[in-house]
Design a protein around this nucleic acid. Structure first.
Lengths: 354, 354
DNA sequence: GTGAAAGCGCTAACAC
DNA sequence: GTGTTAGCGCTTTCAC
């Protein structure tokens, strides 16, 4: 048959004859049936006689045939894949979310692919992301860092679900953390266990934006209010990036200006790890000199030194809701009513708090 | 026009008329040209007059047209996507590899999607993985944990490149770490700086398998040999899993049996973090009582307490090689000669060693 | 139980 | 510069 083909690509791994892009027609010819019968066999539709089935199966095996997904997709409109679009691949929160989603999606016979949107905004989301998203039956989109205005522009052209922020046009399914409530819970615990000067590392006072950072900062403020204190806004410090390095640096600065800080709420667990690192640098003992609490309850918190107390947003419940809502939307013929799910967070106490 | 379509999926985000799966034909009709002219405009082929181009562009905009990638792919055979298949999404090594690859791949105008193969073996790799891989122009496959025999079975039907193990059929492009050399370097440093009883946490003595674990264990043995010592094989301890929790547990056990251990080589950085956690539990000071060195030089090593010394396999050079080799193979019309790349590792000293 | 015809949306050739 | 023809590989009627 053909002379070139796919087989060589992997440099002749298995023992196929010659590869050569085997089509259903080839199989049909070899088995002495028609294309459609091959299709029926491949897709397990039972309207085909056992002897024919066997002959077809054998031909498939001999020729090393494999369905062409692009063709099938063009015809059927389904790829069986769900896309998860996140701003960064290596943030533990996202990779652990990916793991949870992959588990659940596979349970439904589909699979998950993870892509990075980068420090994407507006234009990029509406054009770049839009194109690549086509090869998924549905998309989970993390919109951390996008303004409500950006969000209004998003139009992916297929079933989609948002995670990450709270205030959203109201036209998307949306699974969110209780950012305010969680931060309030965390801060409240520090205040209740003797901390008097509780800083918010990674927070922001830009109340206009209803993004994760501002919301968690509000929770920190509210916790003060609800015990009759007024939060000292100079204790909100904002690192360049929400990573460990920047967090560590900003804490060095904070503690040189405000050595009286005896509690730190970190905007995320990753930031909290940077905080712990800085406190170790400075010889402050945790939790005796300074209590620290994070947010997200990432796996690594179990093993940091000291172990990190954190807010668990109920990540499993969120993952459940995400795939349920998305699959519902994928399966629907009519656009279902957009829904918002916000599980109740709880505080996980480990060694970094009293 | 149509009444249903894509638009509703995202619940009417943007302001398209009605959606309705707009095709090139629709655009062509609206602009008063032919399908192919629309195609030419969309793909930026300049053989189209400026006024026509403008009319087409406007029609595209008005109708909210978007190319159908499945159709294009069926025709052209390229999706512009590279797949990265890893056993686990949340291992820092993999997510950081993903970041490096995504950077480079995007520089070439393509994009990267990451999928999980799970604790996949044989059958799964040759069937499951094979299907889903079709929508990528090329695939980077991490084969950690597969036997050489499994590897021989892999036939993905498209340009592929292996990472992770050393001994491989020799028919794939292959980018590997110098596992033996790296572990030898790490162990050598501990021995040279006064450690006398150096355990290998996460190692394995199953020399039959030439997987990462065995290779790094060999490096540990060799380092002893090259300074005239003979490695005490009872110091090789194997946790259930290569994660922090199991590593921590196994170190607890190790140190209760062998309190004289004064150096630990961890098979990976993640294992090393578990080791550090255990040593903190046991009140051993690092590096004074016990030196610790990891492998992979994952970002988190900068921020652990204490900061982790580690083997840097030259991850950037590996990422460069991976995309260069893969793109070469994708672009080629003839199967290029399979190539093996193994950068030289170096030791990064931080606080966990003397 | 099996097959023939049609077409999903796109682009490579080759006209004009 | 622009259009026509053909076909990528598959599945969905509907007939036999």
């Amino acid at each position: 048959m053909g002379e070139s083909g796919d087989a060589w690509h992997t440099a002749g791994a298995a023992g196929h004859q010659d590869g050569g892009v085997v089509t259903m027609d080839d199989v049909a010819k070899a088995a002495g049936v028609s294309k459609i019968t091959v299709s029926n066999v491949v897709n397990g539709r039972n309207r085909v006689g056992e002897p024919t089935r066997l002959r077809v199966l054998q031909a498939i095996d001999e020729l090393g045939y494999e369905v062409n997904l692009a063709a099938r997709y063009l015809r059927v409109g389904r790829t069986g894949a769900i896309g998860l679009l996140v701003p960064e691949l290596e943030r533990p929160y996202f990779s652990q979310l990916a793991r949870r989603l992959a588990d659940r999606v596979e349970r439904h016979g589909m699979h998950l692919a993870v892509e990075r949107t980068g420090a994407v905004r507006e234009r990029q989301l509406s054009s770049v992301a839009k194109e690549r998203v086509q090869l998924y039956d549905g998309v989970v989109l993390s919109v951390t860092g996008l303004t409500p205005d950006d969000l209004r522009r998003i139009e992916l052209g297929r079933p989609a679900l948002l995670i990450g922020e709270r205030d959203v046009p109201g036209t998307f399914d949306h699974v969110v953390m209780d950012n305010v409530g969680g931060a309030e819970l965390a801060t409240g615990h520090l205040l209740a266990t003797g901390s008097r000067v509780v800083a918010m590392v990674g927070g922001s006072l830009d109340h206009a934006e209803h993004d994760m950072v501002s919301l968690r900062t509000q929770g920190w403020i509210r916790a003060h209010e609800s015990v009759g204190l007024v939060a000292d806004l100079t204790l909100v410090v904002t690192p360049e990036e929400l990573d460990m390095g920047a967090a560590r640096d900003v804490v060095h600065r904070l503690l040189s200006e405000r050595p009286d800080v005896d509690g730190i709420v970190a905007i995320t667990d990753v930031v909290a790890f940077g905080v712990l690192r800085a406190l170790a640098d400075l010889g402050r003992s945790v939790p005796d000199d300074v209590q620290v609490v994070g947010f997200d309850n990432v796996d690594e918190g179990e093993y940091s030194v000291p172990r990190l107390s954190s807010i668990e947003p109920d990540n499993d419940a969120m993952a459940d809701a995400i795939v349920d809502l998305l699959l519902r939307r994928i399966g629907a013929t009519e656009p279902p009513e957009p829904q918002v799910v916000m599980p109740t967070p709880r505080l996980v106490l480990r060694e970094s708090t009293r």
